[in-house]
Design a protein around this nucleic acid. Structure first.
Length: 216
DNA sequence: GCGACAG
DNA sequence: ATCTTGTCGC
């Protein structure tokens, strides 16, 4: 289900242009979110192998209810802007091994805030049909002012005047995270979920759990 | 033209 | 992403 995969930058960019129209940015978000999944990819031991990890949490209690890990050979080099072609294969494989279907996916990376407005979160959303949100740890594209120092403060990330995401402070005095829409979830809803899923650390609990799993 | 550039 | 010790602060 991940068969024909681009092997060149030109092919990969063409795929993004082709799939971009399929992204749903109008839907404000799922009515009920009971199961939230965090996804991340780890690069360890052998440099040509990647580990895709997915951890499903109960959205209310934040307890882990399911998880899946897949180790496989890397399919695409790291190229800023084409990140998804490197991380999507192991993530889709891990999702396939889950016995449940999450109501929302939290991706480690960008969604709309992308050179061609089609980052990992958008791509994963289109391929799975599931609601997705992108949460990145460092700035990539666009510009933004520093959000207030308190938890919950945010400032818009803009590219040529268009708002493509938000720099959101999840902990007082700590560097903000960068939230952008993936698929079928509005920006307000996305940020609300991210804050609700981040009770103690800088990163949302689903992402932290997936990060841990991708390293074991 | 030069540098920067999600992980 | 990954290579890596100690250290400041709640």
């Amino acid at each position: 289900m991940t068969r024909p995969w681009p092997s060149t930058v030109a092919e990969a960019e063409a795929v993004q242009e082709q799939l971009r129209p399929l992204v749903d940015l109008a839907d404000s978000g799922p009515e009920h979110v009971r199961l939230v999944a965090g996804l991340d990819v780890g690069y360890a031991v052998k440099g040509d192998e990647v580990t895709g990890a997915v951890v499903v949490l109960d959205a209310d209690t934040l307890r882990v209810v399911d998880r899946a890990v897949v180790r496989e050979r890397v399919r695409f080099p790291y190229v800023p802007g084409l990140f998804a072609f490197r991380e999507l294969p192991p993530l889709l494989a891990a999702l396939d091994r889950l016995p449940v279907t999450p109501d929302l996916l939290i991706c480690d990376g960008y969604g709309l805030a992308h050179p061609r407005r089609f980052g990992l979160a958008c791509h994963l959303g289109v391929l799975t049909g599931l609601p997705t949100v992108g949460v990145a740890k460092t700035a990539f594209v666009g510009s933004h002012d520093a959000p207030g120092r308190e938890r919950g403060a945010w400032s818009p990330i803009r590219i040529d005047g268009d708002v493509v995401g938000r720099a959101l402070r999840t902990r007082e005095g700590v560097k903000p995270v960068y939230v952008s829409q993936g698929h079928r979830v509005g920006l307000d809803t996305a940020c609300a979920h991210v804050l609700r899923l981040t009770p103690a650390y800088r990163l949302p609990e689903p992402i932290r759990q997936a990060d841990r799993l991708s390293h074991s």
